[in-house]
């Protein structure tokens, strides 16, 4: 990371750190409370909400895991999220490559058509979407989720990826064309590796969105064995309203995978996100 250019003096530095630290606490505190409460008993959560737990009840997790049927939901969420990303990255990077590199009539219009999706909240079209999913016999399937997620991820992905493709110097491709590479292999072998960082950003962004969505599973899924994590948590909250230990530990279980993935990839992700937004 390049260094910032404006460097105030020592006293100001300390004050700034104080502000940043204060905000970090505001951000982390509720998450910390959740983690702490998830290893307490219900009564202890009420009597001692802030303190360190009297004993670490790690079995809260296994209890919540079993009660909520989380292993099944996990598999479903993982399947839907991973597949969504793979399909989405493939189709939108191909389209973005073409939109960024080929001059043809209607290019601009096509790009605008895709980008306008950023302003179309898919959720508002849920009724016709539902009717269609029913008519093509995809109701109560994970495929339905996959399709809707891929389609609704396309606008943002194309928006980001077109910007990235445009930033790659044209000479690289020209060399490949001279070497006699076909269109698809230029895209696949040369361009795709170059936009790796952007793909990672798009991938993580959509992973978070897909993993966290509850609306479409709520509408499309019927069978409990197909539920994803947020829907499972929702169901769980409906059933165990009075068992706070279970509620907090189920929240922790639902949140932790995303946090881990984000932590691992945060640097890359933040760079990609902000680069795209600033250019847009």
């Amino acid at each position: 990371m390049e260094l910032p250019r404006w460097r105030p003096g020592k006293l100001t530095q300390i004050m700034l750190h104080f502000i940043l630290l204060a905000y970090s606490i505001i951000v982390l505190y509720p998450i910390g409370i959740m983690l702490l409460s998830s290893v307490k008993g219900t009564r202890e959560i009420f009597t001692n909400p802030y303190g360190w737990p009297a004993s670490l009840r790690l079995d809260n997790y296994s209890k919540a895991w079993k009660l909520a049927n989380f292993s099944v939901y996990f598999q479903n969420s993982a399947f839907v999220s991973v597949m969504t990303i793979l399909v989405l990255l493939f189709v939108s990077s191909m389209a973005a490559y073409v939109l960024a590199r080929f001059e043809f009539r209607g290019n601009r219009a096509l790009y605008m058509l895709f980008i306008s999706g950023l302003m179309l909240p898919v959720r508002l079209a849920v009724v016709p979407l539902f009717t269609m999913i029913r008519d093509i016999n995809l109701l109560d399937t994970r495929t339905a989720l996959l399709m809707v997620y891929v389609a609704s991820g396309i606008p943002f992905s194309i928006f980001l990826l077109v910007n990235f493709f445009k930033s790659i110097p044209k000479e690289i491709e020209e060399a490949a064309i001279i070497d006699g590479c076909g269109l698809f292999s230029i895209y696949y072998r040369i361009m795709l590796p170059l936009i790796g960082p952007a793909l990672a950003t798009v991938g993580i962004y959509n992973f978070i969105g897909t993993w966290n969505d509850f609306f479409f599973p709520l509408i499309f899924l019927r069978t409990k064995s197909k539920y994803t994590i947020p829907l499972g948590v929702m169901q769980f909250f409906g059933e165990f309203t009075n068992q706070w230990d279970m509620l907090f530990s189920s929240l922790t279980i639902a949140i932790v995978p995303v946090i881990i993935i984000f932590m691992v990839a945060s640097k890359q992700f933040i760079r990609g996100m902000t680069a795209g937004a600033v250019k847009g």
Binding site: S92, M94, A95, V98, L110, F114, V148, I158
Partner: peptide
């Protein structure tokens, strides 16, 4: 190469 994205987008976003 644009076709798959366009198809999915049209069917599942524009059409609804």
């Amino acid at each position: 190469l644009v076709l798959p994205a366009l198809l999915l987008y049209t069917v599942f976003i524009i059409y609804p």
